[in-house]
Design a protein around this nucleic acid. Structure first.
Length: 267
DNA sequence: CTATTTGTTTATCC
DNA sequence: AGGATAAACAAATA
């Protein structure tokens, strides 16, 4: 589930604990989320460090401890971040837990284990963080940069392309469906069929969906309005808010796409 | 028992 | 070479 806005929400679950000292690290290193951690004991150096800053780029999170210990987290399909004040609260899938000096705990839960934990020590941000692409809402994501990418992939279907994290960091399956629905573009349209005006529209809708989803979800994970595709797309016989007709669902590029055939008429 | 899942990486084929 | 496609990962849920 976690896409741009949900990941930002999780960042804000942990960030209130900034400037607090870590007293103990519990890591279930046998779990698959730790597959990239080299030295099995390296996470232990977080003991005694102070949680200093929280960052997000796309779906990636990075938490800095002191000024030199970098903890990278990716939520995968089912990852969640929690903070607990109750000492006896149990977390069945909490495979990484940071105990804080004030009694709170920072928890990374991930039942399905598609998530990932990274760790590096050094005064500068590690490559796995520094080399990530800039945010869609940053100044460097321009129409020109997006279009240059589209020009190189004329035969590609538009929906799977929107899921490419190197170009559209943070966009996941529901955001891609929402973007295409708002743009009235069918998900199976090939890039070459999208004319320049429609590409301009697509570009602004991409940014709009990023802004809207952050506004609704990143701050308190509120329920999106029924005027979005979001609330309808997983329901059987879900209804398009525009046409009131039944939405269609089909696998496109290996992922389920949901669209409104009589609304997304650009094809 | 079968099919499904809002993510990413790797292998394989063209 | 580079793009498209499928499988793999793991576990819950319907």
């Amino acid at each position: 589930m976690p896409e741009l806005a949900e990941v930002e929400y999780f960042k804000r679950v942990w960030s209130p604990a900034e400037n607090t000292k870590v007293t103990e690290v519990m890591a279930r290193l046998d779990k698959r989320i730790f597959r990239e951690i080299k030295g099995a004991q390296s996470l232990n150096c977080l003991n005694g460090s102070t949680f200093s800053q929280s960052f997000r780029k796309g779906k990636q999170l990075c938490f800095l401890f002191d000024q030199d210990k970098w903890l990278g987290l990716h939520m995968g399909m089912t990852g969640k971040l929690k903070i607990s004040e109750e000492p006896d609260e149990a977390f069945k899938y909490g495979y990484l837990i940071l105990f804080l000096e004030d009694g709170r705990r920072l928890i990374f839960e991930d039942p399905r284990l598609f998530g990932k934990v990274l760790f590096s020590q050094g005064s500068r941000a590690p490559d796995w963080w520094a080399k990530l692409p800039d945010e869609i809402l940053s100044d460097s994501f321009t129409f020109q940069s997006m279009n240059t990418f589209l020009e190189r992939r004329p035969r590609s279907l538009i929906k799977p392309l929107l899921l490419e994290q190197s170009v559209f960091p943070g966009i996941g399956n529901w955001m891609a469906d929402e973007i295409l629905w708002r743009s009235q573009i069918a998900p199976f349209v090939r890039v070459a069929e999208i004319d320049p005006d429609k590409r301009e529209e697509l570009y602004s809708v991409i940014r709009e969906v990023c802004v809207d989803s952050l506004e609704v979800i990143a701050d308190g994970w509120k329920k999106p309005p029924n005027s979005w595709l979001f609330n309808h797309r997983w329901k059987d016989n879900g209804i398009c808010p525009k046409t009131k007709q039944v939405l269609k669902r089909e696998k496109i590029g290996g992922r389920t796409a949901c669209w409104s055939p009589d609304w997304q008429v650009y094809r």
